[in-house]
Design a protein around this nucleic acid. Structure first.
Lengths: 317, 317
DNA sequence: CTGAAAGCGCTAACAA
DNA sequence: TTGTTAGCGCTTTCAG
């Protein structure tokens, strides 16, 4: 590995001149430029970006933390986040927690140790306090954490939309999912809103919860759906995340099914699944936008961004 | 941001003592340790990992390059690669090329600039020469590049398995997919082997090719499958990548369908799709294993690893 | 056991 | 236009 000094020596100039020539900063004569160019080629010199960043006081790396990367909603989100961050010249490190709080802590630590310039947290499990003590740029997706800028889909709107759809289709008893231990998630709003709408019309709503493993592991998901269908034979409408919705559809053809997320997998089945679609692209755009501002100490107009959801017609309602 | 110097000042010791205390290297008296601990707490001092790595001559970051991250095979592979690299203490940067050669060049450049300690390349488009000039640790997945260690599924075996299945089911005219411009991919072997088996028994094989966009974008995929089905009404067996197989199944119920990859999406439909399953976990394990050896200058026993595939029974053959 | 000094590979300020 | 000098924040000798 040639260093800038060796190049300087070979070109008979000072290292700083080489630096200027290579960075196009400051004046360098054509003559020197040529000598340097030749030396660079001869030595196959490639500047060490790692060291360069030392002076920029940045690493050019953003961490993105999610509990999973296979689940279609997360892959989709990842795809857009990566594309968006790439536009700003950032590399993206996968911070896959698998729902493990130790991992989550570790990645926050990595942020604090300056390996990341910023962090986008999609689904956090640690306490508010833990996050509030961190001074580095963080954006939270979905989870409301005091003091930390938030980007989330408008799950309240999603719940209302869902409720209206079930009413329109004449459902009497609807099942939906919500994790009672995670009411701080904005996504819990969808169940709340759905219940509101349904109960206003005297319809019954069953709330169940999926273990995270059951959401991301299709086999477990199938198993759970079977149990639930046995348990509630008279349910006539179901709202569940894409994968679970697909599992319900596979098991049970006579109930109204509405998927929540609306990723590409809802079109996989012979019958496309009706869905409430999250605009992952917009979520990505907004969160990156805010994060970049945080990093550059620019003021944020809003510290909370609500991204609208929309209904996509399918064959299962 | 407190620095090691401030801690040293507050604790009335030298920076080097603080360094030793924090790293557990060299002798530090209990008394000093305590003073340092107090100072660290008071200042909320967190050592800058970025700088630390300067001395270790490593960044602790591995790049993983794929043309896409949404496609279920890639998300699955990513998941395992990340998990495996995590075991060795590496962070993983997403190098998503979207099939763009400029992006591919950029990430190779990033490797050369020492931002990555190594690179795993899943699907390379640049020329062999381009890769052969790079001295840094690289593992190639699927694509055969002279001089670069290779990990790939045994696609030849996959093609034979597929052929035998189609024969067994009595198919007379089978359609499969292969990109004629990318014969350097190990995966091209599956089509070659399938043809061998079928033609030995005087069955016809149609080879078509999908644009990459059509493989990863389900809408485009659907469109293409319709065209193909119109074009070849007498085809009675189809082998295609998971997403495309799902698209065929959605359009056409009367042909034998075999998915290649066998990710979780093959179980999505009401009818599970018969598949040739790639062992993504093993592929990840083997490639990480080799990469770590390259990074640590340890000898490789083999520079080519072939990972067996297997057949998974479904309802579509 | 500790501190001073040198330096990782590069950049930026300044004087020439 | 150029070279010298002084760092970035930390680690690692090496005297003491």
């Amino acid at each position: 590995m040639a260093s800038i000094r060796e190049v300087a020596k070979l070109a008979h100039v000072a290292p700083s001149t080489v630096s200027r020539a290579l960075n196009g900063s400051g004046y360098v004569s054509e003559k020197s430029k040529n000598k340097i160019k030749k030396a660079v080629e001869e030595l196959d010199y490639i500047p060490n970006q790692w060291i360069r960043n030392l002076y920029k006081k940045r690493t050019g790396i953003i961490g993105v933390m999610t509990p999973d990367i296979i689940h279609p909603y997360f892959s989709t989100l990842w795809n857009y986040l990566e594309a968006e961050l790439d536009q700003y010249g950032y590399n993206v490190v996968i911070c896959n927690t698998r729902g493990n709080q130790d991992k989550e802590r570790e990645y926050l630590d990595t942020l604090e140790r300056n390996l990341f310039d910023g962090l986008i947290v999609g689904s956090a499990f640690l306490s508010d306090e833990y996050y509030m003590n961190i001074e580095k740029p963080i954006i939270s997706l979905d989870r409301i954490i005091p003091g930390i800028p938030l980007v989330t889909s408008d799950h309240h709107q999603g719940g209302i939309l869902a409720g209206e759809l079930f009413l329109e289709k004449g459902c009497k008893k609807v099942m939906c999912f919500s994790d009672p231990t995670r009411m701080e998630l904005a996504s819990a709003d969808s169940a709340r809103a759905l219940i509101d709408v349904m109960e206003k019309h005297n319809r019954e709503v069953i709330i169940e919860s999926f273990q995270w493993e059951e959401v991301i592991n299709y086999q477990l998901c199938m198993k759970r759906t079977r149990t639930l269908l046995d348990q509630y034979p008279d349910v006539d409408g179901i709202m569940a995340l894409d994968l679970c919705a697909a599992a319900f559809l596979k098991t049970e053809k006579n109930k109204k099914i509405l998927a929540y997320d609306g990723t590409y997998v809802t079109d996989f089945n012979y019958h496309s699944i009706d869905s409430i679609v999250q605009d992952a692209k917009k979520v990505a755009k907004e969160s990156v936008n805010m994060l970049i501002k945080l990093i550059n100490d620019q003021p944020l107009k809003k510290r909370e961004v609500l991204v609208p959801v929309k209904y996509k017609k399918g064959d299962t309602l």
